[in-house]
C-alpha cells in the first residue's frame, strides 16, 4: 500500500484544514462577544427591567382606574353636568386598556429573550466543545419548551401597529362565519 497521499485525499485534507481554521476564527469571534456575560448578566438584567416595567404600569393603571371610578361616582350625583364629566372618565377607562396590551407585549419580548438565552447557551457549549474545552462554564440548559398545542397555539398576543386587524375587519369576518351549533 502506497504511503504517498492521493491527490483527492490531499485536496480533502486541505479543505478540512481550511474548515478548521474558519471554525477557530468563528470561535474566537464568538468568544470575543462574551456570550457567557450576555447569558448571565445582560439577559437576566433585561428580564428584570421588563418585569419592572410590567409591575409599574400595572400599579399605575390601577391607581388611575380607582381614581376614575371615584370621579365617576361623584359625577353621577351631579346630574347633567356629571354626564360631561363621565364622558371624559370613559375616555380614561378606554385609554387604560393600553396597560393590558403593554403587559402582553412585554411578555412577548421576555419570551424572545429566553429564546436568545437558549441560543447563546447552545453556542457557548458547541464552540467550547469544538475547542476541546468549555470556553466558559455553561450550565445545563433546559430543552426548549414544546410548541404549544390546541387553543394555546392560537395565542400570538397583540399585533404590531399597522398589522393589526380593525374592529370592522373582525366584524366582517365574524358575521360571515356560520353560527356554532352549541350557541344559544
Amino acid at each position: 500500500m502506497s504511503s504517498t497521499p492521493q491527490p483527492v485525499s490531499k485536496r480533502l485534507l486541505e479543505h478540512m484544514t481550511q474548515l478548521l481554521q474558519r471554525i477557530e476564527v468563528a470561535r474566537e469571534e464568538i468568544t470575543a462577544l462574551r456570550p457567557g456575560q450576555v447569558r448571565d448578566v445582560h439577559l437576566p438584567a433585561a428580564g428584570d427591567e421588563l418585569d419592572a416595567i410590567k409591575s409599574a404600569t400595572e400599579s399605575a393603571t390601577q391607581t388611575i382606574l380607582d381614581a376614575a371610578e371615584r370621579i365617576s361616582a361623584t359625577a353621577r350625583s351631579l346630574g347633567e353636568p356629571g354626564g360631561k364629566i363621565n364622558d371624559q372618565v370613559m375616555r380614561i377607562f378606554e385609554a387604560c386598556t393600553f396597560q393590558d396590551i403593554t403587559g402582553q407585549r412585554v411578555t412577548k419580548v421576555f419570551s424572545a429573550l429566553k429564546e436568545i438565552e437558549l441560543t447563546v447557551s447552545g453556542l457557548v457549549r458547541v464552540v467550547g466543545a469544538l475547542h476541546g474545552r468549555e470556553i466558559e462554564a455553561a450550565p445545563a440548559v433546559a430543552p426548549p419548551a414544546p410548541a404549544p398545542e390546541g387553543e394555546r397555539s392560537l395565542l400570538h398576543g397583540p399585533q404590531l401597529p399597522g398589522q393589526q386587524s380593525s374592529q370592522a375587519d373582525i366584524d366582517a369576518l365574524f358575521d360571515s362565519l356560520p353560527t356554532a351549533s352549541n350557541k344559544p
Binding site: 402582553q104 387553543e151 398576543g157 386587524s165 373582525i170
Partner: peptide
C-alpha cells in the same frame, strides 16, 4: 388582543 382571523374563526 388576539385579532388574527384564526382566532375569530375558532371563537365563533
Amino acid at each position: 388582543a388576539e385579532g388574527k382571523p384564526e382566532n375569530v374563526i375558532a371563537a365563533k
